[in-house]
């Protein structure tokens, strides 16, 4: 498996689902079962961590004269 920082939330969830499925099928050796379980728990941790990292950002993207990208903060006017 890749390092925790590299994997996307989406992939982590997908992998986790796979692990649960394979474990459920019960065709694995005990070592493999435990290995998968460990990986699964790691993935749970990663997913939860990603969910906890509340980072909500809204920015405005525009083009400056001459074509340069310009990004600035954006506040909604109520």
């Amino acid at each position: 498996m890749e390092e925790g920082e590299e994997i996307t939330f989406e992939d982590a969830m997908k992998r986790l689902e796979e692990i649960v499925e394979t474990l459920g099928e019960g065709n694995l050796s005990l070592e493999d079962s435990l290995k998968r379980f460990q990986e699964g728990m790691e993935l749970c941790k990663i997913c939860n961590k990603k969910l906890d990292e509340a980072e909500y950002k809204v920015e405005k993207l525009m083009e400056k004269e001459g074509g340069e990208l310009s990004v600035e903060g954006f506040e909604v006017k109520e």
Partner: peptide, 12 residues
């Protein structure tokens, strides 16, 4: 996520 975790625990 928590249901996946639970299922995984049960399975292992």
């Amino acid at each position: 996520l928590s249901s996946l975790e639970l299922r995984m625990r049960q399975n292992v």
